[in-house]
Design a protein around this nucleic acid. Structure first.
Lengths: 328, 328
DNA sequence: AGCCAATATGGAATCGATTCCATATTGGCG
DNA sequence: CGCCAATATGGAATCGATTCCATATTGGCT
């Protein structure tokens, strides 16, 4: 590993001068500058970022904590974050929790020790312990996807999106609408989307049979099982189902297809996510686009503006868009 | 930011003793240990990783360079890498090139400056400049997806997978087989898969009409366009098409569906990738599973065993698996 | 009781940069 | 021609850890 000292010797100047040259801080003669540049080019010297960070307290690294990388939502968010950060020379240090709540907290500490300049947390819950840990941080943090009081949030409008989608199903003539959700510990996806559905049903004086409400995890197969449950256990079969994610909807479609239940004639399906493949399944899914990449970009942007300055507590609510296709 | 010096003062010991306590390097009395632990617990002190790395030359960070995060392949690889690395306390520093070759080289330098303990490169080309840069590195590196002489490679068996898939189509009675590929600068996906297809066709004395061979980029829409080309420009219409990725195949399916060309009766489709949704499109795709997560895991494993020791140059070729579904 | 080795502890150098300060060299101008 | 400010340069402290070395303390054993 080449150091600044060696470069200085080779260019016949002091370390201070090399440093000044590297950082364009002036007071370097043309002559010296040239020699230094030449030596650097020849040797391929790259200054140690660690020594630099130790001295300057800035790392140009942002920690990103996420529940999984294996969903389209996550990768779109990360892509958005990266797009924004890379324009400013920042990089992403990944912290994947694999949906483990303890790890979420642990990673906050680890990122702190690595002195990242900021953290973006793609949250799945609003655990008080996590919240407490976050509030103790001195570096800026932005939360995506869950509302946390007193912090910078980038949010999807889960409640209204959910109401609107339910309302759309009702407009289309459906009265008996089933719901495939996820655990309500996930306040945004679990609780708020369910509430939106229920409230809209109630607003239209429509009743909900308990068997119509099923829960999955975030994969395709559990969507399939949920639809199986709905179909086989409900007394009064619904004519439509609202799945809180595209994957759950795709699982549901797969069950329906195998049982020769036609979509949308016998059972309409709608969901939230607008994943790339939602338009290529059979039939193409009616779904709500959440603009995940934009969420990532927006979060990164907020974070960058908060670095170095006091964070203005903000709630950014992204808009959504209903995409109507053949599944309803 | 709390430092070791302050902890030392609070615990009434020297910095050396605190350091020894932190690293369990012995020679710390029970008494002192207890006081130090107490202070650390109370203050939530976390030692600066930068100062540590500066001294020890180890960062516990691995740089991962990839062409995009927005594909299932990439996220599976990253998930695999993370799974393996996190068991050893390593983290991932992401470097997303967005398919920009210049950035690929640039990021090697940046990661070097950040003194990552190793690099995993998910490669899309075998550019000589890149190769030269890599060979100059002193830290271990593992390449996924492209064969690079003299380095540790984790490879898919593109050539044989391609031959086998072509052979399968032929077995099924197809004689006129089209091919949707990508640019051959990507040696693995572009060149080798095409060669496998061609060689297998030749081995069976089957001729290929120029219009049957089309090229896309890595997205669904270009697969659609490629199939459009094949269908509208070929004199002699093929009865099957081999797409080098699932996305291209899905695009092709979409074209066929819109033009009421039945699959597999009028046109069979097969591809490589085994993406999660390949089984939920209509009809479910016959595809080859490459085990991307395993590739990531294996690469990370190789990298970790090469840290600290001289790298054994190795070529690891992963096996693949033909998944037969209804599209053929 | 006295000696030696094991244990315990602190001091100081070090890692590779930045940055403040002191000093040396210029050049413009009266 | 001499003076002052701007420019150019190097020395040294510093960031926060680790680690080598020197010294102090302890306990076991003859």
């Amino acid at each position: 590993m080449l150091t600044i000292k060696e470069i200085a010797e080779m260019a016949n100047v002091s370390r201070s001068t090399v440093s000044r040259a590297l950082n364009n801080s002036g007071y370097v003669s043309e002559d010296a500058m040239e020699r230094i540049k030449k030596v650097i080019a020849e040797t391929g010297y790259a200054p140690s970022e660690h020594a630099k960070s130790l001295r300057t307290k800035r790392t140009k690294v942002i920690g990103v904590i996420l529940p999984t990388i294996q969903t389209e939502t996550s990768s779109k968010i990360v892509a958005g974050i990266d797009k924004e950060l890379s324009t400013q020379g920042y990089q992403i240090l990944l912290a994947n929790t694999n949906l483990d709540k303890a790890k979420e907290i642990e990673y906050v500490d680890l990122l702190k020790a690595r002195q990242v300049d900021g953290i973006i947390l793609v949250a799945t819950n609003t655990d008080p312990l996590l919240l407490k840990k976050i509030k103790g941080l001195t570096i800026p943090i932005v939360i995506i996807g869950q509302e946390m009081e007193g912090l910078v949030n980038v949010l999807y409008d889960d409640y209204h999106a959910s109401r609107e989608l339910t309302s759309f199903l009702i407009e289309k003539g459906h009265r008996k609408i089933a719901f495939i959700g996820v655990d309500e510990e996930d306040r945004a996806v679990g609780f708020l989307r369910k509430k939106g559905y229920k409230d809209e049903m109630i607003a239209h004086k429509l009743s909900i049979e308990p068997a119509w409400i099923q829960k999955g995890i975030f994969d395709i197969d559990s969507g399939r099982q949920a639809m199986d449950q709905i179909w086989t256990t409900s007394q009064n079969k619904p004519t439509a189902a609202f799945a809180v994610t595209d994957r759950l909807a795709i699982g549901a479609l797969s069950f329906l297809k195998d049982h020769k239940i036609s979509v949308p004639e016998q059972m309409a399906i709608a969901s939230i996510g607008a994943s790339e493949i939602s338009q290529y399944v059979d039939p193409p899914l009616t779904t709500i686009d959440y603009q995940n990449e934009k969420a990532g970009k927006e979060a990164a942007h907020q974070l960058l503006t908060n670095i170095g300055t006091k964070a203005a507590i903000k709630k950014i609510i992204l808009d959504y868009r209903l995409i109507i296709r053949d599944s309803v």
